Amino acid sequence: MGQSVVAVDIGNSFIKAAVLTDVLTPLDLHDTPVVTFKSEDIGNAQWLDFLGSCPVETQWFLASVNQSCLDCVVQWLDSQTTPIKRTILNHQHLPLDFSAVDVDQVGVDRLLSALGAMGARENPFPVVVVDIGTAVTIDAVTAEGAFLGGVIMPGIYLSSIALANYTDRLPEVEVNISDLQGLPQAIGTCTQDAIKGGLVWGLIGAIEAVVKQQQKILGPGAHLIVDGADSDLVSNLPFDVSTMDHLCLRGIIHVAQNVLD
Protein backbone atom coordinates (compact mmCIF):
# COMPACT_ATOMS: atom_id res chain seq x y z
CA MET A 1 0.00 0.00 0.00
CA GLY A 2 1.26 3.50 -0.84
CA GLN A 3 1.81 6.37 1.57
CA SER A 4 -1.49 8.15 2.30
CA VAL A 5 -1.64 11.90 2.81
CA VAL A 6 -4.17 14.56 3.71
CA ALA A 7 -3.29 17.86 2.03
CA VAL A 8 -4.91 20.89 3.67
CA ASP A 9 -4.95 24.45 2.31
CA ILE A 10 -6.25 26.84 4.99
CA GLY A 11 -7.19 30.14 3.39
CA ASN A 12 -8.76 33.33 4.65
CA SER A 13 -12.32 32.18 3.96
CA PHE A 14 -12.23 28.41 3.43
CA ILE A 15 -10.33 25.20 4.14
CA LYS A 16 -9.68 22.97 1.13
CA ALA A 17 -8.62 19.39 1.74
CA ALA A 18 -7.85 16.30 -0.31
CA VAL A 19 -7.08 12.73 0.73
CA LEU A 20 -4.54 10.85 -1.40
CA THR A 21 -4.30 7.15 -0.63
CA ASP A 22 -0.99 6.91 -2.52
CA VAL A 23 0.72 10.28 -2.76
CA LEU A 24 3.64 8.88 -4.78
CA THR A 25 1.50 8.02 -7.80
CA PRO A 26 1.19 10.66 -10.56
CA LEU A 27 -1.06 13.49 -9.40
CA ASP A 28 -4.46 13.94 -11.01
CA LEU A 29 -6.74 16.10 -8.88
CA HIS A 30 -9.57 15.43 -11.32
CA ASP A 31 -9.74 11.95 -9.79
CA THR A 32 -9.26 13.17 -6.21
CA PRO A 33 -12.22 14.85 -4.48
CA VAL A 34 -11.37 18.24 -3.00
CA VAL A 35 -13.69 19.14 -0.14
CA THR A 36 -14.26 22.69 1.09
CA PHE A 37 -14.94 23.52 4.74
CA LYS A 38 -15.35 26.57 6.91
CA SER A 39 -13.60 26.83 10.27
CA GLU A 40 -16.83 26.01 12.12
CA ASP A 41 -16.99 22.68 10.25
CA ILE A 42 -13.90 21.29 11.99
CA GLY A 43 -14.96 18.14 13.84
CA ASN A 44 -18.54 18.09 12.55
CA ALA A 45 -20.22 15.25 10.65
CA GLN A 46 -19.07 16.43 7.20
CA TRP A 47 -15.49 16.73 8.45
CA LEU A 48 -15.56 13.26 10.01
CA ASP A 49 -17.19 11.68 6.94
CA PHE A 50 -14.48 13.15 4.73
CA LEU A 51 -11.72 11.79 6.95
CA GLY A 52 -13.35 8.39 7.27
CA SER A 53 -11.58 7.28 4.09
CA CYS A 54 -8.14 7.93 5.58
CA PRO A 55 -5.96 4.93 6.49
CA VAL A 56 -4.68 4.92 10.08
CA GLU A 57 -1.12 5.90 9.13
CA THR A 58 -2.14 8.93 7.10
CA GLN A 59 0.21 11.91 7.35
CA TRP A 60 -1.13 15.47 7.21
CA PHE A 61 0.54 18.32 5.32
CA LEU A 62 -0.93 21.72 6.11
CA ALA A 63 -0.41 25.25 4.82
CA SER A 64 -2.21 28.26 6.23
CA VAL A 65 -2.57 32.02 5.93
CA ASN A 66 -5.19 32.00 8.70
CA GLN A 67 -3.52 31.37 12.06
CA SER A 68 -6.69 31.07 14.15
CA CYS A 69 -8.13 28.50 11.76
CA LEU A 70 -4.86 26.57 11.69
CA ASP A 71 -4.89 26.53 15.50
CA CYS A 72 -8.38 24.97 15.41
CA VAL A 73 -7.27 22.24 13.01
CA VAL A 74 -4.15 21.48 15.07
CA GLN A 75 -6.21 21.38 18.26
CA TRP A 76 -8.55 18.85 16.64
CA LEU A 77 -5.62 16.73 15.45
CA ASP A 78 -4.10 16.75 18.93
CA SER A 79 -7.41 15.67 20.47
CA GLN A 80 -7.54 12.40 18.53
CA THR A 81 -6.92 9.13 20.35
CA THR A 82 -4.47 7.92 17.73
CA PRO A 83 -1.57 10.36 17.19
CA ILE A 84 -1.64 11.94 13.73
CA LYS A 85 1.61 12.87 12.02
CA ARG A 86 1.52 16.39 10.65
CA THR A 87 3.80 18.85 8.90
CA ILE A 88 2.98 22.56 8.83
CA LEU A 89 4.64 23.90 5.71
CA ASN A 90 6.77 27.00 5.34
CA HIS A 91 9.14 28.24 2.67
CA GLN A 92 11.94 25.95 3.85
CA HIS A 93 9.99 22.95 2.57
CA LEU A 94 9.74 24.33 -0.98
CA PRO A 95 12.29 23.63 -3.76
CA LEU A 96 12.17 27.18 -5.16
CA ASP A 97 14.71 30.01 -5.16
CA PHE A 98 13.57 32.84 -2.87
CA SER A 99 16.70 34.98 -3.01
CA ALA A 100 14.86 37.82 -4.79
CA VAL A 101 12.28 38.33 -2.01
CA ASP A 102 11.97 38.77 1.74
CA VAL A 103 10.52 35.29 1.98
CA ASP A 104 9.50 35.58 5.64
CA GLN A 105 7.10 38.33 4.55
CA VAL A 106 5.51 36.35 1.70
CA GLY A 107 2.41 34.22 2.32
CA VAL A 108 3.04 30.50 2.05
CA ASP A 109 -0.09 30.18 -0.11
CA ARG A 110 1.54 32.29 -2.83
CA LEU A 111 4.71 30.22 -2.69
CA LEU A 112 2.82 26.93 -2.86
CA SER A 113 0.63 28.14 -5.72
CA ALA A 114 3.80 29.03 -7.62
CA LEU A 115 5.17 25.56 -6.92
CA GLY A 116 1.87 23.99 -7.99
CA ALA A 117 2.02 25.87 -11.27
CA MET A 118 5.69 25.05 -11.86
CA GLY A 119 5.18 21.38 -11.03
CA ALA A 120 2.59 21.04 -13.78
CA ARG A 121 5.00 22.13 -16.53
CA GLU A 122 6.36 19.61 -18.98
CA ASN A 123 9.03 22.06 -20.15
CA PRO A 124 10.67 24.85 -18.16
CA PHE A 125 9.39 28.32 -18.96
CA PRO A 126 8.67 31.42 -16.89
CA VAL A 127 5.15 31.74 -15.51
CA VAL A 128 2.86 34.38 -14.10
CA VAL A 129 0.62 32.77 -11.50
CA VAL A 130 -2.78 34.37 -10.85
CA ASP A 131 -4.80 33.10 -7.88
CA ILE A 132 -8.27 34.61 -7.56
CA GLY A 133 -9.79 34.24 -4.11
CA THR A 134 -10.66 36.53 -1.21
CA ALA A 135 -7.54 38.36 -2.33
CA VAL A 136 -6.07 38.24 -5.83
CA THR A 137 -2.37 37.49 -6.13
CA ILE A 138 -0.29 37.78 -9.30
CA ASP A 139 3.23 36.39 -8.96
CA ALA A 140 6.20 35.98 -11.29
CA VAL A 141 8.40 32.86 -11.40
CA THR A 142 11.40 32.38 -13.69
CA ALA A 143 12.04 29.28 -15.78
CA GLU A 144 14.78 28.35 -13.29
CA GLY A 145 12.31 28.33 -10.40
CA ALA A 146 13.11 31.71 -8.84
CA PHE A 147 10.11 33.31 -7.15
CA LEU A 148 10.38 37.04 -7.90
CA GLY A 149 7.32 38.28 -5.99
CA GLY A 150 4.23 40.00 -7.33
CA VAL A 151 1.16 41.94 -6.29
CA ILE A 152 -1.79 41.46 -3.93
CA MET A 153 -5.12 43.21 -4.41
CA PRO A 154 -8.67 42.83 -3.11
CA GLY A 155 -10.80 40.16 -4.70
CA ILE A 156 -14.28 40.83 -6.02
CA TYR A 157 -15.95 39.88 -2.72
CA LEU A 158 -13.82 42.31 -0.69
CA SER A 159 -14.31 45.08 -3.24
CA SER A 160 -18.08 44.60 -3.17
CA ILE A 161 -18.14 44.74 0.63
CA ALA A 162 -16.00 47.90 0.63
CA LEU A 163 -18.40 49.68 -1.75
CA ALA A 164 -21.37 48.73 0.44
CA ASN A 165 -19.69 49.58 3.76
CA TYR A 166 -18.10 52.88 2.80
CA THR A 167 -20.91 54.46 0.81
CA ASP A 168 -24.39 55.46 1.89
CA ARG A 169 -26.56 53.83 -0.75
CA LEU A 170 -24.54 51.37 -2.80
CA PRO A 171 -25.62 47.76 -2.19
CA GLU A 172 -23.39 44.74 -1.75
CA VAL A 173 -23.46 42.79 -5.02
CA GLU A 174 -22.65 39.09 -5.10
CA VAL A 175 -20.51 37.85 -7.99
CA ASN A 176 -19.39 34.22 -8.22
CA ILE A 177 -16.17 34.55 -10.17
CA SER A 178 -15.83 30.77 -10.62
CA ASP A 179 -19.20 30.47 -12.38
CA LEU A 180 -20.12 33.71 -14.10
CA GLN A 181 -22.20 32.16 -16.90
CA GLY A 182 -21.32 35.06 -19.15
CA LEU A 183 -19.64 38.35 -18.36
CA PRO A 184 -21.65 41.39 -17.23
CA GLN A 185 -22.16 44.32 -19.55
CA ALA A 186 -19.60 47.10 -19.39
CA ILE A 187 -22.49 49.59 -19.55
CA GLY A 188 -24.76 48.78 -16.63
CA THR A 189 -28.34 50.06 -16.81
CA CYS A 190 -28.92 50.00 -13.03
CA THR A 191 -26.75 50.41 -9.96
CA GLN A 192 -26.35 46.68 -9.31
CA ASP A 193 -25.40 45.95 -12.92
CA ALA A 194 -22.98 48.88 -12.91
CA ILE A 195 -21.28 47.55 -9.77
CA LYS A 196 -21.13 44.01 -11.14
CA GLY A 197 -19.61 45.25 -14.39
CA GLY A 198 -17.12 47.41 -12.53
CA LEU A 199 -16.03 44.54 -10.28
CA VAL A 200 -15.55 42.03 -13.10
CA TRP A 201 -14.12 44.27 -15.81
CA GLY A 202 -12.00 46.07 -13.23
CA LEU A 203 -10.47 42.74 -12.23
CA ILE A 204 -9.84 41.78 -15.86
CA GLY A 205 -8.17 45.13 -16.51
CA ALA A 206 -6.06 44.94 -13.37
CA ILE A 207 -4.83 41.42 -14.18
CA GLU A 208 -3.99 42.45 -17.75
CA ALA A 209 -2.04 45.52 -16.63
CA VAL A 210 0.00 43.68 -13.99
CA VAL A 211 0.76 40.70 -16.23
CA LYS A 212 2.05 43.00 -18.98
CA GLN A 213 4.41 44.65 -16.50
CA GLN A 214 5.64 41.30 -15.17
CA GLN A 215 6.19 39.97 -18.69
CA LYS A 216 8.59 42.85 -19.31
CA ILE A 217 10.82 41.26 -16.67
CA LEU A 218 10.14 37.58 -17.37
CA GLY A 219 10.15 37.95 -21.14
CA PRO A 220 7.43 37.48 -23.77
CA GLY A 221 7.54 33.69 -23.38
CA ALA A 222 6.09 33.87 -19.86
CA HIS A 223 2.93 31.79 -19.61
CA LEU A 224 -0.11 32.82 -17.57
CA ILE A 225 -1.67 30.24 -15.22
CA VAL A 226 -4.94 31.19 -13.51
CA ASP A 227 -6.64 29.52 -10.55
CA GLY A 228 -10.13 30.36 -9.32
CA ALA A 229 -11.65 32.09 -12.36
CA ASP A 230 -14.46 31.33 -14.76
CA SER A 231 -13.45 30.49 -18.33
CA ASP A 232 -15.41 33.48 -19.66
CA LEU A 233 -13.26 35.81 -17.59
CA VAL A 234 -10.03 34.10 -18.61
CA SER A 235 -10.94 34.18 -22.30
CA ASN A 236 -11.03 37.98 -22.16
CA LEU A 237 -7.38 38.21 -21.11
CA PRO A 238 -5.15 38.94 -24.14
CA PHE A 239 -2.61 36.25 -23.28
CA ASP A 240 -1.90 32.58 -23.74
CA VAL A 241 -3.66 31.34 -20.59
CA SER A 242 -3.99 28.00 -18.82
CA THR A 243 -6.54 27.46 -16.07
CA MET A 244 -5.62 25.10 -13.26
CA ASP A 245 -7.64 24.57 -10.11
CA HIS A 246 -6.33 24.16 -6.55
CA LEU A 247 -2.80 25.40 -7.23
CA CYS A 248 -1.96 25.70 -3.53
CA LEU A 249 -3.12 22.13 -2.87
CA ARG A 250 -1.04 20.97 -5.82
CA GLY A 251 1.97 22.67 -4.27
CA ILE A 252 1.30 21.00 -0.91
CA ILE A 253 1.07 17.60 -2.58
CA HIS A 254 4.29 18.27 -4.50
CA VAL A 255 6.07 18.93 -1.19
CA ALA A 256 4.55 15.78 0.34
CA GLN A 257 5.82 13.73 -2.60
CA ASN A 258 9.34 15.12 -2.11
CA VAL A 259 9.28 14.47 1.64
CA LEU A 260 7.96 10.92 1.41
CA ASP A 261 9.76 9.75 -1.72
Rank of each mutant, 00 (worst) to 15 (best):
V19F: 05
V23S: 03
P26I: 10
L27A: 04
D28F: 05
L29A: 04
H30P: 03
H30A: 11
D31W: 10
T32V: 15
T36D: 03
F37V: 14
K38C: 01
K38R: 07
S39G: 05
S39Y: 03
I42V: 15
N44K: 15
N44W: 06
Q46E: 07
W47T: 13
W47G: 08
W47P: 14
L48H: 08
L48F: 09
D49F: 11
F50S: 07
C54R: 12
P55W: 01
V56P: 12
E57F: 10
T58W: 12
T58N: 05
W60A: 13
F61T: 13
F61W: 12
C69G: 01
C69H: 03
C69M: 02
C69V: 05
Q75V: 06
L77E: 12
S79W: 12
Q80P: 12
T82C: 10
P83C: 04
P83E: 01
I84N: 10
I84F: 09
K85M: 07
I88G: 00
L89F: 08
N90K: 11
Q92S: 04
P95V: 00
F98G: 10
V103E: 01
Q105I: 05
V106E: 01
G107F: 01
V108I: 15
D109G: 14
L111K: 07
A114S: 06
A114N: 10
A117L: 02
M118N: 01
E122G: 07
N123F: 03
V127L: 15
V129A: 05
D131F: 05
